[in-house]
Design a binder for these strands. Sequence first.
DNA 1: GAAATATGTCAATATGGCTGACATAAATCT
DNA 2: AGATTTATGTCAGCCATATTGACATATTTC
Lengths: 181, 181
Amino acid sequence: MADINLTPLRRRAESAETPGTAAAEPLWDIIELLFFAYRDFVSDPDDALAKFGFGRAHHRVLHFINRNPGMKVADLLVILKITKQSLGRVLKQLVDLGYVVQKAGANDRRQRLLYVTPKGETLAMKLAGLQTDRIVRALAALGPDAHEAARRFLIAMLDDDGRDAVLRLIATAGHPRRSDS
Amino acid sequence: MADINLTPLRRRAESAETPGTAAAEPLWDIIELLFFAYRDFVSDPDDALAKFGFGRAHHRVLHFINRNPGMKVADLLVILKITKQSLGRVLKQLVDLGYVVQKAGANDRRQRLLYVTPKGETLAMKLAGLQTDRIVRALAALGPDAHEAARRFLIAMLDDDGRDAVLRLIATAGHPRRSDS
DNA sequence: GAAATATGTCAATATGGCTGACATAAATCT
DNA sequence: AGATTTATGTCAGCCATATTGACATATTTC
C-alpha cells in the first residue's frame, strides 16, 4: 500500500511535463487533497460558530472586517464576491448581536465603514486561532521551508488576474482603511 | 509596500515557534490564501457545470464515482459526509441524465454499485482537466519539488484521525471496488 | 437642481445541506 | 421459516446561503 503512494506520483510528474500533450494526466492527488484539506480546514471554525448560531458566511464577513477595520461595504462585496443582499442578512445579524459596528465615513457620509467591536474581535481571533493551530501543526510536521513553500503554492494557484489584488489585500490588511478611496 | 510582504512573514514564523506561547500569532497569509486559492480552484468546474445545469454537488458525486467505479452508495456518503437524502437528489439527476448508472451488487444484491457512463466519464475528465490545468500551471511556476511540497502540506493539513482513510482512498482509487467489503 | 453613488430593503427563487418518518428488498440470525 | 438487520430510496418540511430584480434613501458630484 505505502509504495503505491509514491510510484504513481513520479509517473504523473513526468507525463505532466511531456511536451505536445494537450492535457496532462489528471493530478488526482492534489485535486482530492485540496478538497479534503479545505474541508477539514473550515470544519474547526464551523463547529465553533455553530454554538453561536452563526455559519460560514458570518465567519467570512467577520474575518475580513477584523482584518480590514474601516473597510467599506462595497469593498467587502468585492472581496467576498457576493451580492449586497446576501451580505445584508449576515451583516445585519453581526451588527444586531454586537460583533460589528458601522460608522459613517468622515469624508463621504454615505459610506458605512465597518469595524469589529471588542466582542467581534475576540470571536474573530478565536476562529483565526483554530485555523492557525491547524496550520502550525501541519507546518511543524514538515521542514523549515514549508511555510514559504505553502505560500508560494497557494499564490501560484490563484487566478492570474486576481493575484495582485489578493497579495495587496494580505499585505495591507491590519491597517485601518482610508475612508475615501 | 512590497517589503511588507516578507518582513512580517519571518516575524510570524519565529513567534509560531516561540515555546511557551499558548497561541501563535495568526498565520493570516495561509488562512487567506487558502480561502482565495480554493475559491479560484473550484471556480473553473463551477463555470463549466453551470452550462449543464449542474452544481458543485454534482461535481463531487461524479468525481468520486469516476475515481472509484463500483463503489457503494454508503461509501460515497462516508466520503462526502452528507446524508443520503442530500445525495439522493443529486444522484438521481446524474442517473436520469445518463452520467451515472447503478448496478445491483453481485454478492449482495441490495447494494447499488455506482459507475460513470462514457458520457459521465467524459464530463468528469473534463472537469478534472480544468483543475489539473490550474495545478500544472501553478507547479510549473515553482521549483521541481513543488508538487511533493504541496502534497506534503495538504496531507499535513488533514485531520489526524482521517488522514489514513484519505491517503488510502487516493492510493486505491481508479481500481474498481470489490462488491462485498 | 439633476444625476450619479453608496447603501439598504422587499420579494421571489435556486441550491444544497439537514432531520424525521416510512417503504422495500435482500441478507442474516435464531 | 420467521424475525431482524442492512442497504437503499423516498416523502415532507426546514434552514442557510446564494441569486436576480425592483425600489428607497441619503449624500455627493456635476
